[in-house]
Write a protein that binds this DNA or RNA. Sequence first.
DNA 1: CTGTGTGCAAAACGTTTGCATGCCT
DNA 2: AGGCATGCAAACGTTTTGCACACAG
Lengths: 143, 143
Amino acid sequence: MDTVDGALQALRSKGLKITPQRIAILKVLQGNTSHPSAEEIYKKVTRKHPNISFTTIYNTLDVLKKTGQIRELIIDKTRKHFDPDLSPHNHLICDTCHTIFDIFEDFSDAITIPQSVSDVFHVTGHEIVFYGICKECLQKTGN
Amino acid sequence: MDTVDGALQALRSKGLKITPQRIAILKVLQGNTSHPSAEEIYKKVTRKHPNISFTTIYNTLDVLKKTGQIRELIIDKTRKHFDPDLSPHNHLICDTCHTIFDIFEDFSDAITIPQSVSDVFHVTGHEIVFYGICKECLQKTGN
DNA sequence: CTGTGTGCAAAACGTTTGCATGCCT
DNA sequence: AGGCATGCAAACGTTTTGCACACAG
């Protein structure tokens, strides 16, 4: 997604409804580069919207995913993460603190599927995940 | 891991114990290219070892992971999968049936971390996951 | 004999569901 | 008015934990 307004229009155009809860969730997501989990979104939304439920968070994330406005990341063993940045990019995840970072380098030139594979599998996309340790954790651990 | 015997020796050399349950689990894993989940391993082991518990499955998988004999795949939203093949390779996952396939093409030439990234993150490995639909599901869905 | 491994049951965890009510359009 | 959205509580599936007992070394 780009802007809250754009996202709202996308919802409206599909007959979906604009609610204060959805607006609040979209505000948290807009420009968010922290790859939040449902719980992180819940916590932030709760600050200004104390009565919101997890059901609504999950429902809205599902709607946004299905309308192609956010991406679900399968990177973390323990929970799902969401990324409002739809531009093609990849991720680094710290083995220690589990923070997810963006990497905008383009590797797509080399990622070509050989004929032998495309014969038996229709590839629609790919995701590269880098594992390692972030600077902060390196310093804490006494490199 | 390569062979059951090799894996057992690796355990022994670390003061860990060889039990019938561990042997049974290793037999299921040896040469297994189906990227089984804990439950799939449990089901297979149960055939010859009806009293084994899930605790032992998880415990053994954890031990094998920590001794570097199997790899845990973070690919599937709903459960963990394990891969005894430690050779560098990547995976395809079918969006429909969630089967995981291997792809042995080497993309590493192009996957170079730029200085700007390695300054703030120490990369130890990476994994490329391809998404799409496998041949079987394509045919069922009426392509 | 020591301590690691096992199996059971219960708990924990993130996520999903059923349902009555609420509210956007 | 109609139907989608909300919030609650309960259910779900996977994984983890506490504990007493068993057994490999």
